[in-house]
Computed example of a mutant assay.
Amino acid sequence: MCSHLQVATTHWKGFMLSLKHGEPYADPTSKALGNVHDKSRLRTLDMFPKTEIKAKLMHYTKYFFVGDPFNRLISAFQNKFGQPKELIYAKYGKHILQHYNNESNLPQTAVEAFESGKRVSFNNFIQFLLDPKTMQPFDPHWRQIQQLCHPCQIQYDFIGFQETLDEDAEQLLSILKLTKDFKFPHAYKNMTSSDSVLQWFSQVPLKDRRKLFMLYEKDFKLFGYRRPDELLDG
């Protein structure tokens, strides 16, 4: 499984933990499953021996979900910088505010920064992504999907899309023969409207929107998303 549609990923992790625990399957949203984001709960492919990795890639059902690249960035920004998160503030927030908003003497905590009005703007976030000094690969929440899920190297059995999340999730559960055991909640379908996307990117200069498109162009092309002419043509 490879998915970074913010809250949708939370549900899929709960789904995987429920399968791991076995029948009778627990509700993927159940608190009894514990913290689904605890990295020790689910092993990633690179944690296995090479022979086991090859076996899993050959015999396991492999799937991932993808969303419009620019929509993903808005979602990632809202999720990580739209509210005070101490780990994000320490790892990214302070750096972004210092280097792209000329802030100095920053508060020690995210809560104090929010209360004082020192918040990362969407444009600050985009400047951070476009800076050649920013280390790649990016954080998984805003990393290019083709770098995150490697669709050119792994033969996936199923690719789902945020825009048709309800239908695709149901189809995947059908492929896995789990439709009687699980139901993907409709509430997790989270999309940003075209007008809202325009509003978000209105604070980003045209030249930077074009640079950003080049940064994520492979995702647009690989997964059939149209070029957002309304954002890129001045």
Rank of each mutant, 00 (worst) to 15 (best):
Q78N: 15
Q108V: 10
Q108T: 08
Y100K: 00
L106P: 02
A76C: 04
G93Q: 06
L106K: 04
K85V: 09
T109N: 08
Y89S: 01
Q83T: 15
L87M: 09
G82T: 05
H99R: 12
E112R: 03
G93H: 09
Q98H: 10
N79T: 12
F77T: 06
N101E: 12
L87S: 15
K85F: 14
A76G: 06
F81V: 06
L106I: 12
F81W: 13
S75N: 07
P84I: 04
I88C: 07
G82N: 09
G93P: 10
L106M: 11
L87N: 15
A113C: 04
S104Q: 14
N105D: 08
Q108L: 15
S75A: 09
N102Q: 03
K94C: 07
L106C: 12
H99L: 09
K91I: 08
H95W: 07
E112N: 13
V111A: 07
Q78H: 05
K80D: 10
K94G: 07
I96G: 01
K80C: 01
I88R: 00
Y89F: 03
F114L: 03
N101T: 10
S75E: 06
F77R: 06
I96W: 04
S75C: 13
S104T: 11
N101R: 08
K85R: 14
A113E: 12
I96R: 02
I74G: 10
N79D: 14
F81G: 14
N102A: 07
A90T: 05
Y89A: 02
P107A: 08
E103P: 01
N102L: 04
P107Q: 03
K80Y: 06
F81S: 02
P107C: 03
I74C: 13
E86Q: 10
F114G: 00
K85G: 08
Q78E: 05
H95Q: 00
L87E: 13
H99Q: 12
Q83C: 11
K91E: 10
S104E: 10
E86W: 09
K91C: 05
N79P: 11
A110W: 04
I74F: 00
S75L: 01
H95M: 06
G93F: 06
Y92N: 04
A90Q: 14
N79A: 15
A90E: 11
K94H: 03
L106G: 15
E86Y: 05
I74N: 09
H99D: 11
T109R: 10
E103R: 15
G82P: 04
Y92R: 04
N101Y: 10
V111W: 02
N79I: 01
Q83F: 15
N105V: 01
L87K: 13
N79V: 09
P107R: 04
L87P: 03
Y100W: 08
I74R: 08
N79R: 02
P107K: 00
G93W: 02
A76D: 05
Q83Y: 13
